[in-house]
Write a protein that binds this DNA or RNA. Structure first.
Lengths: 334, 334
DNA sequence: GTGAAAGCGCTAACAT
DNA sequence: ATGTTAGCGCTTTCAC
């Protein structure tokens, strides 16, 4: 029951700890015969290496940190799980640092990161300053969907937000809408700005512009209130592009409470394809972001960096997005 | 930049490592004067203890494991975050073990748990056998909402599932429904069984019984299909109690697609009060479970166990639930 | 009040 | 092919 150590295994076999260690690490320098004997006893006693002793000696912990803004947000949780799936297979375990949008935690996180000696870090949705502080740890860092432009040396994995916005504009136009508004997260962050850019570019191809762009806090209630206000003020529109499904859901609710039919009177396209978007009524048409690919690619890239033991980058990886057509848009018309 | 060690601090000050260590741990045996000097240099060099060296020496890691079935499920993520909030304040960091409903991972988790030497463990939604295996680690373990009856020595924090079911029945009856069906997770697990018990007890008080109980897989589509089938087969009902919001959402969708009005023709009550339940249309009436309390109480209790260094229990803690009335039920009728 | 030294469990030179 | 040994960074007796 008490954990068995290398020394005890060695004593049982009458060999040295070095031999046991060699077998454990497959580092060669022993006969097939000893290998077999050692392995047997190891298994028999269910030997489990002491990670702290090993880490102290080797300066490698086989663990990586994952920093994200909010674990209760399905989108981030999915990315974390995808990262874990890949890293787990390679023998790494992960420490999640849930920032809870709380600046105080940053200091605590940095201390913990340093104290525990993670071998690498994946920073999801970080601001430039936050990421720069983390770089001082001198371990490989990968960003996923960064919120501000990083310096050139930072490897980044991101969704094709701009093309997503473009797809939304195109889809709305093809389905006959003409007076389109955009509902966007008020924060001046890269992914949202890029979605807006792409969206405008899509409209511009048809020599159109958004009728109106609302900048609102990132939550359902704000979106609901905003659409209700626009309606109350007599604003007339037949299409909405929301920068996130969260906002689209709020818009949908406001329209329904105002007695408007979706998609007959107003069509809506969201962004992210969160699980719930398929269960609203009507089900939300949206731009799909692949959290799986985001997480997997980030993990693969980090593993590569950790093995090659270099910190610098070879640029960005852009993960494609696509339109998921459901019920808040009409059948294709053109 | 390179991490500074106790030895370096000691050399700078011309004292021994022992003295620095004593100051660091507030263990006394030094003058106020030295304390001040040591603290100064510590701060100046931004000293950060090496967690591995410390852990190796003290056999304490100041970390606890949190095992849960699925991180991408908001319910579990919220519990994890609540646990973290409490433990973080006490200087613990947490390792999340996301089982992804995958039995293979259990072995990996146990190895990792042992190897990293966590000081305690919180097992969320575990089966008896799983928890028993974990008990062999000889560290304090707390269960949250266990899926099967544990032995008497296991401390458990759980929602009052039974009373929740009772509340749902009472609410449905008070709002005039008479032909009530229940939609439940098909798995034979404690929380769901208890909700059913309470629900039946509530009906029985009015000398009623559920018209029908459907056992279905735990996902939206299954619920939607089940209600669609019942409707197709001419089953007539005016109230639904779903054992989880997830199922309630599926039911709502099926009713809407069948042209039925909620709550006019059919009233629905769910369970859990997941974030999304307030944003469905109409918004879901549901039984609220406090993930915050569940997580906080589990963490507090674990801290106590770890400090007292005893493994046994003092029974169960039951966290209250309550009805959250929204739009899938009618106004109170008597 | 302070220092010397041992040792936690492991790996990696360096011997043999 | 195998053993001996030093040491990773820390805490904790035991001396003084």
């Amino acid at each position: 029951m008490a954990k068995v150590t290398i020394k005890e295994i060695a004593d049982i076999l009458g060999v040295s700890t070095a031999t046991v260690s060699r077998v454990l690490n497959n580092s060669g320098g022993y006969s097939e015969e000893t290998k077999r004997r050692v392995l047997d006893v190891l298994k028999q006693y269910n030997y489990q290496a002491n990670a702290m002793a090993k880490g102290l000696r080797t300066k490698k912990t086989n663990s990586v940190g994952v920093v994200l803004p909010d674990l209760t947000n399905e989108y981030f949780a999915k990315i974390a799980v995808a990262i874990e799936r890949v890293l787990m297979k390679k023998g790494y375990s992960i420490n999640i640092y849930n920032m809870s949008e709380d600046a105080n935690k940053e200091e605590l996180m940095l201390r913990d990161l340093e104290s525990r000696g993670v071998d690498g870090l994946i920073y999801v949705s970080g601001y430039r300053n936050q990421v720069n502080r983390v770089k001082e740890l001198n371990i490989p860092v990968i960003c996923v969907n960064q919120l501000e432009k990083m310096d050139e040396t930072m490897p980044v994995i991101e969704s094709d937000h701009e093309y997503g916005g473009y797809l939304a504009a195109k889809a709305l136009l093809e389905r006959g809408t003409e007076r389109i508004i955009m509902l966007r997260d008020e924060r001046d962050i890269l992914p949202i700005n890029q979605r807006e850019q792409g969206f405008k570019a899509g409209l511009k191809e048809q020599h159109l512009r958004p009728l109106h762009i609302s900048r609102i806090p990132f939550n359902v209630d704000a979106a609901q209130k905003e659409i209700a206000d626009l309606l109350k003020n007599g604003k007339s529109f037949d299409g909405i592009f929301a920068s996130s499904d969260i906002l689209a859901i709020g818009a949908l609710k406001a329209l329904q409470q105002h007695g408007l039919q979706v998609p007959d009177n107003v069509q809506i396209i969201g962004f992210d394809n969160v699980t719930f978007s398929q269960y609203s009524y009507p089900a939300l048409t949206t731009i799909h972001q692949s959290t799986d690919q985001l997480g997997e690619k980030a993990a693969e890239r980090l593993i590569q960096s950790m093995q090659e033991n270099h910190l610098d980058s070879n640029g960005r990886i852009v993960v494609p997005v696509h339109l998921v057509e459901r019920e808040t848009t009409q059948a294709w018309r053109v």
